[in-house]
Computed example of a mutant assay.
Amino acid sequence: MYSICAKCQGRKMLCGLPRCPIEERIRAVKSSLLKIRGREVFGATPPSAVVGEAGWPRVRVYIGEPPDVTGEEARAYDDPRLLWGRELEDIIRLRSYMVFGYAAQTSPRKLGELPLLAVSERPVDVEMRLAKTPVESLRFDLREKPMGPRAPIEALRIDGNPAVPRALDKLMSDDLGAGAAAVELYRRGVDLYTIQRAFALGLLGARHRRRLVPTRWSITAVDVAIGDALAQQVRHMPEVSQPLYGYAEYLDNRYLVAVVPGPLRFYYLEKWTYAGRVAEIEVAEDPRGVRSTMDGGYEAARLAILEKLASMGRRGTVAMVRWIGERYYVSVGNWQIRETLRRLQLTPLDENYKTYTALVGKDPISLIKNIKRLDEFL
């Protein structure tokens, strides 16, 4: 893609996209830098917090805020439920506008009130004084969400009180294991994304063992813990009475899901198409819950489908296929998998045969049975 970008320079649109993503990102970054007064940034964190991976256990903890955006307006910059449905370029623009201050630490205890900002139920106004002028690293990474300009935090002043969920506030003082705490919070109705940030920032678990956990690891760990708890319930529910199918698409990601009568088990196939090349990821899970491999995308998809089955009071054998096209050139995070599949409708094929055929391009039964190994699995 970058060879095309060098020739195009944002003018000829050789990539076929309606707007140049690099130009959009540069404009967003410049706009945010203009709102910084010296090295001071004032705005509200949506909340937005990221724990990095490099150098673990001493890692960078980032807190993000859109300059001069305060109150509830800030929520739209990093809330998956509000971001879902937007175009990819809009998501890149919003994320790139946020300024991220960071601190490098080994223990959550040394972060002061910063973790409380990240688990607030509402945006919190924050003034950050940065140690130097923030810089932007322009990267288009299929593993990392886009981030705006960043710099070390010199000082941080909270203008307001973080609204920590009551259930989380209680568990922060307990010694319950981090996975069990995540499940308990989910059962008590705490937002999944708040739980993920709490896990990453070391607010859960046995107090003497709490550590900062890189955000990518924490997201998958929470999906696994909650998904396993849901699977334990669904495993003993009655079977679906007939095959169910669902189709959804978002950001050039297309999903086809089938649930057929049988024990609770999963097959997941992810197919990437990029620059004429195809790559595949396969995950199979047996009725005991044993996976053939660990994959964050699979765990996000699995959680969404388990939520759906639990709400139906039914179990079944599940096949999920995710196609990823070339227009998904920047990863926005596994939330888009989870939120897209949460909105997918599972219905008997005979009720929507023509609709599925039109969406998928062919008879979905033939399609799903011709996918690699899927006919054997079902």
Rank of each mutant, 00 (worst) to 15 (best):
R302W: 11
M320K: 00
A258R: 14
G297V: 02
M312F: 13
G289F: 06
I305E: 06
A258W: 02
T347I: 12
A275P: 00
Q345M: 11
G296S: 09
E282F: 10
V330D: 03
E280Q: 14
R314I: 06
P261S: 05
A300C: 05
A300F: 04
V290F: 10
A300G: 08
L264E: 09
E280I: 11
F266W: 15
A310F: 05
L251Q: 03
K308L: 04
R277F: 02
T340S: 15
E307S: 03
Y267M: 12
S311T: 07
I337Q: 05
R342L: 14
R314P: 02
L256S: 08
D295R: 02
R291F: 12
D252E: 11
L256W: 03
S292K: 06
R343S: 12
W323S: 05
E270R: 13
I281H: 12
A279N: 14
L344E: 12
W272C: 04
V330Q: 15
P263C: 02
A279E: 15
N334C: 07
V321G: 00
V332D: 09
L306F: 06
G262I: 07
R291P: 05
R265N: 03
S292W: 11
G333T: 08
V283M: 07
P261M: 07
R315A: 10
R338L: 15
I305V: 15
W335G: 01
R291C: 05
T273W: 01
A310Y: 06
L251P: 00
V330C: 03
G297W: 05
E339K: 12
S292I: 10
Y274E: 13
E326H: 10
A310M: 04
T340A: 14
E270C: 05
L344W: 13
Y255Q: 00
T340R: 11
R277W: 06
W323Q: 04
A275W: 11
T273P: 00
N334I: 10
E307K: 07
P287I: 02
G296I: 03
G262F: 08
G333A: 08
E280F: 13
M312C: 07
G333S: 06
L269C: 05
V330M: 13
R327Q: 11
V260C: 00
V330K: 12
Y328F: 14
E285N: 01
I281T: 14
E280T: 15
A304S: 14
D252F: 01
I305G: 05
R327G: 14
R291K: 11
G289A: 09
R327N: 15
L309A: 02
Y268F: 15
Q345D: 14
R291M: 07
Q336T: 12
Y298A: 01
E339Q: 13
G276L: 13
I324C: 02
A279H: 14
L346R: 13
A284F: 07
T273G: 08
E339M: 12
R254F: 03
P287K: 02
K308F: 03
L341E: 13
T293C: 06
Y267W: 09
R315G: 08
T347C: 09
L264I: 06
Q345K: 14
Q336A: 15
D295C: 01
E280M: 14
T317Y: 04
R322K: 01
T347V: 13
R314N: 05
F266V: 04
Y274L: 12
R277K: 15
